[in-house]
């Protein structure tokens, strides 16, 4: 009997059901899916719609993880979009300049690998730089990344002169648009990234330190954790994730540009907080973020099918966040009365 209860608890915790907040998210998600299925009986649950949703989630999803890891550590990374665009532009530049059209064989594949690695290295480097400014100069994360965001945005525009760089080889386009077993490639990349980051956060000393740092920097320092080291790593990780998002972004659009995804910056914060991440650090899990991303995507796709403008979606996203915050507040107040 005892064994059974502990098994149930294990399953609950695996599903993220241990946190009441996640239960709310699941209920809201189910309600939204139910609603759209009722309103759009023939369209919502069609493979085409599910597939298009699966194509759209990863980009915002990976950027949101990039934001989330810094929020967990008590910081913020306002430069994620700029970083992703910088990496995307660098990849696009190498892909378009050094691969002759119609070339085949090992050469182009090597060059594509180099392009991707260069992009990832670039974004990681930018993240490292953010971490360095925060850890060694003592600048607050919001100001440091506001500065680098502006700087890199500027650099992106200067580098591209405002133009679009487009036309990539097929393998690259496959990363953004291909299907494997009926599931879009970007979704694999997202699932893989989310899984890895989740392991990193929950199962490594580094991850534990991130949460501790997010709650109390000084006490973490007094426990013998090298704060600077952790901050450098967390912003580098955030940067690296931006690079991965960039790869998906440019391969999906078959182009790179300075202003892609610019409206996503605030949405990533919204998604993270909706997913239960404490904006001041210390608490939050990947599973909550994934649920929140699903909610956002279901709203977006459902409204899209209904022919509503994408802007109504954005308004509803904001509304849902406020609603969840309201529920949390209500629960806390009721909880106090009960105890």
């Amino acid at each position: 009997m005892l064994k059974l209860t502990s098994d149930i608890q294990r399953i609950r915790s695996l599903l993220g059901l241990k946190d009441e907040a996640n239960v709310y998210l699941i209920v809201i998600l189910a309600a939204l899916i139910g609603l759209f299925t009722l309103v759009l009986p023939d369209q919502f649950f069609r493979a085409a719609n599910l597939q298009s949703m699966a194509f759209q989630v990863p980009e915002l999803g990976i950027l949101s993880i990039a934001m989330m890891v810094t929020l967990l550590s008590g910081g913020i990374n306002l430069a994620i979009i700029a970083t992703a665009n910088m990496a995307g532009i660098l990849m696009a530049y190498i892909l378009t300049q050094f691969i002759p059209e119609g070339a085949t064989g090992a050469g182009p594949i090597l060059m594509m690998t180099i392009a991707i690695l260069a992009g990832l290295a670039m974004s990681t480097l930018i993240g490292f730089l953010n971490g360095w400014i925060i850890a060694y100069l003592g600048v607050s994360p919001i100001l440091a990344t506001l500065g680098t965001m502006t700087l890199i945005q500027g650099a992106n525009v200067v580098l591209t002169k405002g133009y679009v760089i487009s036309g990539f080889p097929d393998p690259i386009r496959f990363i953004g648009n291909g299907l494997v077993l009926g599931i879009p490639m970007p979704l694999y990349v997202f699932a893989f990234s989310a899984f890895l980051v989740s392991i990193l956060l929950r199962r490594t000393p580094f991850g534990v330190a991130v949460y501790m740092l997010g709650s109390n920097e000084k006490a973490t320092l007094f426990s013998g954790v090298s704060i600077r080291n952790i901050i450098l790593k967390i912003y580098s990780l955030s940067g690296l994730l931006c690079g991965v998002a960039a790869l998906i972004m440019i391969s999906r659009f078959n182009s790179a540009k300075a202003g892609y995804a610019s409206s996503y910056l605030l949405v990533t914060i919204l998604a993270a907080v909706l997913g239960g991440v404490d904006p001041f650090g210390g608490f939050g899990k990947i599973i909550g973020l994934v649920l929140s991303l699903l909610i956002l995507q279901v709203i977006s796709s459902g409204l899209n099918l209904l022919g509503m403008s994408a802007h109504l979606t954005i308004a509803l996203w904001g509304g849902i966040l406020i609603f969840i915050l309201f529920l949390n507040q209500l629960r806390q107040r009721l909880g106090h009365v009960k105890v």
């Binding site: 802007h311 109504l312 509803l316 904001g318």
Partner: peptide, 13 residues
């Protein structure tokens, strides 16, 4: 957090 949400709501509507 609140004003990021309301920014989206005001503008979106």
């Amino acid at each position: 957090i609140i004003t990021i949400a309301t920014l989206n709501v005001f503008y979106g509507v």
